[in-house]
């Protein structure tokens, strides 16, 4: 919110307990609330969309089927035949993040993907899953990946730490990318909205000029719709790539 001449672009990310004292006791803020809303929206979309069970689908059913096919193809094409087992996980991940990103664009709402704790948790979940799958599928051979095939043995002291660092940085980049994108988008929306309010305080000329940031915010909203879908897609496709490497022999 714009307070006087300063712009508080980060205040929108503050967490407040909902449901009063009960929320405070349960550490229940608007962030988990929006997670529940997102989950319910995804489930409602599928349940209501698939209720006709029609051979020739209507619009909503076609949309639900397209979503299913989209993630199913992504999982199976990227991971391979083993991808069928991970399809529900990738589906959950993609639509949890997508719904979170899009819900955050609604007024008076909150984007839980703009919290690094949430994105790190999601990324660590993917990372731990891929490590477990790797160890299960490849056993001790998994560690051989840290030494690139065909590289001179003399370079091992240099290459192996680099490979390990690059492997360990996966969850970091995965989480920071989503977090930073969402924060940046919401900060920009807040900044231009604050410009409008500040310009409106300058009288008649300000009123006219204040239209500018509104127009920019409309464009930014379109950009954020793109970014929200893109980041969910990137998160899901990278998860698929990590799992592909995990199941590959």
């Amino acid at each position: 919110m714009a307070a006087g001449s300063t712009i508080d672009a980060l205040g929108q990310f503050e967490l407040h307990p909902v449901l009063g004292g009960l929320g405070e006791a349960l550490r229940f803020s608007q962030s988990p609330l929006m997670m529940i809303v997102a989950s319910v929206a995804v489930l409602a979309f599928l349940y209501i969309g698939m209720r006709p069970r029609a051979v020739v689908p209507g619009r909503l059913q076609a949309a639900a089927e397209i979503c299913y096919d989209f993630i199913h193809n992504m999982a199976v094409d990227t991971i391979g035949p083993e991808g069928r087992a991970f399809f529900p996980f990738v589906f959950t991940l993609f639509f949890f993040i997508l719904a979170g990103n899009y819900l955050g664009l609604l007024p008076f709402s909150f984007a839980f993907t703009s919290h690094v704790a949430v994105t790190v948790a999601l990324a660590l979940m993917v990372f731990v899953l891929s490590v477990i799958v790797s160890l299960k599928a490849q056993g001790a051979k998994f560690f051989a990946h840290f030494m690139p095939a065909g590289a001179p043995v003399a370079l091992a002291p240099l290459l192996v730490p680099i490979e390990i660092l690059s492997f360990l940085s996966r969850p970091v980049s995965l989480s920071i990318r989503l977090f930073a994108n969402m924060v940046a988008g919401h900060v920009m929306l807040e900044m231009f909205a604050a410009f409008t309010i500040m310009l409106a305080g300058l009288g008649l000329i300000g009123d006219a000029l204040a239209v500018g940031p509104v127009v920019i915010n409309v464009a930014l909203m379109a950009l954020e719709l793109l970014v929200g879908a893109l980041q969910a897609y990137v998160f899901a496709i990278l998860t698929c790539i990590y799992l592909r490497e995990a199941v590959a022999h």
Partner: peptide, 17 residues
């Protein structure tokens, strides 16, 4: 609340999954 949302997120994600 910052860590609380992670715990809640884990539960909600698991239920959704």
């Amino acid at each position: 609340l910052v860590i609380g949302q992670v715990v809640w997120g884990a539960v909600i994600f698991l239920v959704l999954y």
